[in-house]
Amino acid sequence: MNSANRLTPYLFMAPAIVIMGIALIYPLGYMMYGSLLDWNPSQSIEEAEFVGLKNYITLWGDPNFHESLAVTLIFAFVGVSIELVLGVGLALLLDRNLRGMTLLRTMFILPMMIAPVVVGLMWRYMFHPTVGTFNRTLEALGLPTVDWLGQNALLSVIIADVWQWTPFIFILSLAALQSLPRSALEAARIDGATAWQQIIHIKLPLMMPVLIVTGLLRLIDAFKVLEVILVLTEGGPGLSTEILALRISRTATEFRELGVAAAMSNYLLILLMLLTAAMFTLSRIQEIRANRVRAAAEEDS
C-alpha cells in the first residue's frame, strides 16, 4: 500500500514521459546514431556503414562548413545586435501615453505574425534588381541602384530578418520599461539627470536582465533560421548566405549524405545548447543573488 502510494505520482507522469520519449528522445538518439554512419538516403539505417567520428572530423576541416558557420554567426550576431539597438531605441521613444498607442503596438508586431515563407517572398520582390520596390525608388530619386540579392545578399537577408524580429525586442523592451519603478525615475529627474542620462544611468541598467534574456532568445532563433533565406537567396550567390540550417538540408537532400547532415545538426545543437546554458546560468545567478539579498535584508530588519 505504502509503496504503491509512492509510485502513484510516477504512474501519472508516465504518459508524458512516454510522449517525451517518442517525440523527443528517440529522434534525437536516432540523429546522434545517424551522425556516426556513412549513410545514403537510398539505404536503410541497418545497411549504412558505421564510421565513428569520421563525419565530425571531416566537417571540422571542411572550409565550406567553416564558411557556412561564419555566415551563420555573422547573420545571427549582426542581425540580433541591430534588432536590439532598434527595438530598445523604439521602446525608449514610444514609452509614453500616446493616443492610439495600442493600435500602434499591434501594428508593430504584425511582421512577427507573418509566415516566414511569405516574408521571404515579399522581400524577394522588393529586393528584385529591376522591378523591386527599392531599386525603382532609388532610380526615381536618381540614385544608383543596389545589387541587393547579389553582392549584398547577406546584408539584404539581415535587413529582412531585422524587419521581422525588431518588433519582438520592441515589445519586450517596452514591457520592461513600463514596469520600471516610476519613483526612481522621478528621483533621477530631481537629482538632475537629463533624459539621456536617465536612459544611460537608470533605464538601461534596470532593463538589462530582460534585454539579456531577449537577446539570447533571438540569437538561438537566428541560428535556426531557414525559410526566409531559402526563399530569398537559396544560400547564394556562392555560399554567401548559406546559413547552417540551409547547408544541413542541402547536405541531406542534394548531396545525399545523411550522416554528415546529422553531424552538422549536432554541431549546431551544441552551439545552441551552449547559448541556452549561458542563458540559464545567467538567470540562475540572478535568482541566487536575489535570494541572498533577500535573506540579508530579512536578517537585518
Binding site: P181, S183, A184, E186, A187, A188, R189, I190, D191, G192, A193, T194, H201, I202, P205, L206
Partner: peptide, 20 residues
Amino acid sequence: LEPKDRDLAMVFQDYALYPH
C-alpha cells in the same frame, strides 16, 4: 523649469532608491 533646475532634493514615500 525642469525639476533639476529648481535646486531641490526630495525624499519619496517608497524611497525611490536606484536598485542597481
